[in-house]
């Protein structure tokens, strides 16, 4: 049962990663990246590493996304069309 839950989180994280890479709107990518971090938090917890889960919950969904969003505010919003 727990294997199925872990499998579902893994698959959704892979799909999220593909969306993050192929998204043209960069702030949307950052928001999806926060979701990716949330999935990895649940995975760390299920693999019985709550220390790493706590760190990832604060850094991956809080601090790093704020740093990325501030950097995007400084630079530009859209990815350039190829």
């Amino acid at each position: 049962m727990i294997g199925l839950i872990i499998l579902a989180i893994f698959v959704s994280m892979i799909i999220l990663a593909i969306f993050i890479i192929f998204n043209r709107d960069l702030p949307h990518s950052v928001i999806l990246f926060m979701g990716f971090g949330l999935g990895s938090v649940v995975l760390f917890f299920l693999f019985s590493a709550p220390d790493v889960a706590l760190t990832e919950a604060v850094i991956g969904t809080g601090a790093s996304s704020v740093v990325l969003l501030v950097t995007l505010l400084q630079v530009r919003r859209k990815e350039r069309k190829r």
Partner: peptide, 21 residues
């Protein structure tokens, strides 16, 4: 309990981030 220096330090920093925002 789970946690420690790195985790607690980052939590305190996120509190300061809330104040900055």
């Amino acid at each position: 309990s789970p946690g420690g220096g790195f985790q607690g330090g980052v939590i305190i920093a996120s509190g300061f981030l809330l104040m900055f925002l």
